[in-house]
Nucleic acid binder design. Structure first.
Lengths: 242, 242
DNA sequence: ACAATAGTGTCTATGAGACAATATGGT
DNA sequence: ACCATATTGTCTCATAGACACTATTGT
């Protein structure tokens, strides 16, 4: 994987004296707020030499070779710094690298995506939640972050069709109608109550707690995620997405 | 994603004078040969200062900021250099980065995986095919390439359950029993003939050519992939993988 | 005719989709 | 009693799994 002659700029064996791309990590952080899917963005600084000054961007930054053990730790650190959340659902999304995506030079970013419950920790000063109107964000993002965000949403929607991922967007205790609502928000289409309940309950992913949610109508059973934090994969998608 | 203060080693805004990780790209190349799934590996050089001298490794190497437009182009170039194949199925697998995976320092690799037909182009001198015995490779690989390879196999097996990916492992013309055999090789379990045919034929991914494969028994219809090269996603997996 | 593999049909089980029916709280 | 929502049940449909049956070649 390394050490072979790949071009003029790479010298003889063992020689590491050639230009290296910039290496960054970015995190797409999703949460359900106000009955809709929202993403956490930061405002870029306005300093001299800064690319995309004052633009909106995904939270992220350079890998710190002194501080970060590995990429996942770097992503977890950035998530923690921005949201205070320490143990969320964090999955690698992919990487984007090219000569032109950053005006400062060849750069590659490792993108992660995180799902956190609404009322998690304290938000950083420069971070704000943004919602999608019609499945799209209104504002333009710095770098290729718009593309990365679009990929993240696509991946999330896709996986929600056949996995229990939305469970990671829920508070500690929730009802089945709550969970179904989150599925519907992410998929942006209604689901059948009966089929939904059958699927979730037979997946052995949640367990009832000895409490009910009371309201102006029939109370609903409260559930919590089972210990095994692994997401569940269903053998069918929800709808034949025609 | 960049430019914020992330630690002592990162200076003030716009300052890019801090240590950068090494950036590489590695490619996991699969093909069906001799009725089994095989992967292309290279022998690492023995020069002084080379990590893992003479070990087996995935084909790959440093990103060449002068030569490579982007990561995908870099992966395609490495695939072409090793196999002569120019338009295969090439998908990003993920990235691995840490302080310790390469003894030369903090490094991050962008891993891709490729599916190519058996009798594709000319193999590079240092490259050889290796097969899995019992789903595992016998030899140890350099760096964390064993882990990357395991992830690739897992991803391939997983996707074969509900996609048409094995079609990219086929020659230009093939029969349905041929294709079923490739599914079975990758999944390492037999599939039902009838359900298999129904699924594939209703997926509208292949079309018959006006030829039959003849043998010492009933001839089989030959098919080819339809133009639209996108993989097909089925709404169910093959077996409830209990 | 026979062997061998290609291709089709039949029957059952599972789970989704549609939608009706019932249950249980607040007011 | 009535409303609103939770929860369950019924019926139909599509497709996988199992497996039997038919088709078509070479020998």
């Amino acid at each position: 994987m390394a050490g072979e002659a790949t071009g003029k700029s790479v010298g003889k064996s063992g020689d590491l004296d050639f230009p290296r791309p910039l290496t960054t990590v970015d995190v797409v952080i999703f949460a359900i707020r106000d009955d809709s899917l929202q993403v956490l963005l930061v405002r870029r600084p306005a300093g001299e030499g800064e690319p995309f000054p004052e633009s909106l961007a995904l939270p992220g930054g350079f890998v710190d070779v002194a501080k970060d053990r590995d990429l996942a730790a770097c992503a977890a650190r950035k998530l923690r710094e921005k949201t205070g959340v320490t143990s969320p659902y964090l999955e690698q999304l992919g990487s984007w690298g090219s000569a032109t995506r950053d005006p400062r030079g060849w750069s590659a970013t490792h993108a992660y995506f995180a799902l956190i419950p609404e009322k998690a920790g304290e938000l950083a000063a420069d971070a704000r939640w943004f919602l999608f109107s019609g499945g799209r964000l209104k504002e333009k993002l710095a770098f290729d972050h718009g593309e990365i965000l679009a990929t993240a949403i696509q991946r999330l929607r896709n996986k929600v069709e056949y996995t229990s991922l939305p469970a990671y967007l829920m508070p500690a205790e929730f009802t089945l109608p709550d969970l179904q609502r989150v599925y519907e928000i992410v998929l942006d289409r209604p689901l059948e109550k009966s089929a939904f309940r059958t699927r979730i309950l037979s997946a052995d992913m949640i367990e009832p707690v000895a409490k009910m949610r009371r309201g102006p109508n029939r109370p609903a059973q409260l559930y919590r995620l089972k210990k095994g934090r692994e997401p569940v994969y269903f053998v069918r998608t929800f709808n034949p997405p025609e």
